[in-house]
Simulated scan of single mutants.
Amino acid sequence: MSEEDFESNAPTITIGVAMHKEYNIPNDDIYVPIHVGADCHPDTLTHAIQDNTGINISSLNPYFSELTALYWLWKNCDSDYKGLVHYRRYLAPSTIHERHSPPRKQRAITRRSLARQLQSHNIILPSKRHYIIETIRSRYAHTLPSEQLNTARSVLSALSSQSIPAWDKVMRRRSAHMFNMTVMDKADFNSYCTWLFPILFECMKRLSPKQYDAFNARYPGRISELLMDTWILTNHKHYVELPTVSPEPINWWKKGFGFLMAKFAGRKYHASF
């Protein structure tokens, strides 16, 4: 389908921007702010869609993080294409010129650039994050409680045994599509969520997040990042990758130092970087 045909068919595109505080989002009608954790903080971001409206799991936000927005989109949005990004992390255009020419705060992908990708791809994922000296499993075990991975695999074995080979392959890799960011056509988006959330709910039954501090209690959201590639591999889904961009600089030194301390000094993560 040509770009002109795609635009003339006027597909509806909704990309939820998971937010928990005031922040400027891109000025493009594809982006819709969603207040995550509205049950916990009802007086915040009153202008945004509240994730405790309609069919929702807003009360689970302390454990699911941005996934309460993903769930809201699944149950309450009927757009032809649905997606999720973060208020401080977006998908970016594929070309260097489009990605770097505008000011940093205007580098998120636009409807027009996204339409070019959606002409031939039903699924868009962020570029993989690479962990050169670690596998996905060893990195998680060095930085976070490893029993969370064991529980996830056990649940997969019970609820989606055909996904175990893909899960094990993801664990052995040194890269993965992280952040719970994506844009998918409605059928794939709904299919993914239908598969994902029962697995996470069962993980919570077997390994209560309430036993952890607030940081580690968010493990269902972190496990879901690894389940994305598991679902992609299991279902032989084709996708295209796009770079990610932040509207503000990232402190890579701080992130790198935290990772090295976890790997070589046994210092687990207790806060986001």
Rank of each mutant, 00 (worst) to 15 (best):
H238Q: 13
N216K: 05
V32K: 10
R139S: 14
R112C: 08
D5H: 09
E241F: 03
Q162K: 09
F264G: 09
K210L: 14
D188T: 15
I164P: 01
Y239L: 10
Q106V: 00
H121M: 02
I250G: 10
T194F: 01
I57L: 10
T68E: 06
C40E: 14
F273R: 14
W195H: 11
H130T: 15
A38D: 09
A214C: 07
S208P: 11
I96D: 14
E98K: 14
S127Q: 13
F215Y: 15
Y63Q: 13
N61Q: 13
D185Q: 08
Q106C: 08
H47W: 07
N180T: 05
P198H: 07
T95M: 03
F259I: 10
N52F: 03
W167D: 11
L242C: 04
I49W: 00
L73V: 05
D28N: 05
I57V: 14
A271S: 13
A141H: 02
R99Y: 13
S224D: 12
H20I: 05
I136C: 12
L70R: 03
H97L: 15
R112F: 05
S94P: 00
N76A: 05
L226W: 02
Y269T: 05
P220F: 02
A262K: 10
N9W: 01
H121K: 12
N9D: 12
V32L: 12
E248Y: 04
L60D: 10
K237D: 02
F197W: 03
S272M: 06
F189S: 11
H97R: 15
H270W: 00
I223Y: 02
W231E: 13
N56I: 06
L156Y: 02
S8I: 08
I223Q: 02
K263T: 14
E66I: 03
N235T: 02
S161I: 00
P209G: 08
A217R: 01
I34S: 06
E241R: 07
Y239E: 13
T151Y: 00
E248R: 12
N52P: 06
I223D: 11
D39R: 09
M1L: 06
R104Q: 13
K205E: 14
Y87W: 04
M181Q: 02
Y192D: 10
Q50M: 11
W74V: 11
G83T: 06
A108N: 01
H20Y: 10
L118C: 05
D80G: 08
I164Y: 05
L156S: 06
F189A: 15
I136D: 04
T151R: 07
L60R: 12
A115W: 00
K128C: 14
T143Q: 10
R267Y: 07
W252L: 15
N216S: 14
L233A: 11
P26R: 02
I132A: 15
F259V: 12
V32T: 11
T234K: 03
Y239G: 13
I15S: 04
H121A: 12
V155A: 07
L149Y: 05
C40Y: 08
T151L: 01
R137N: 09
A158W: 00
A69D: 07
W167N: 04
R218Q: 14
P165E: 12
N150I: 03
T12Y: 01
R174M: 10
N9C: 07
F264C: 09
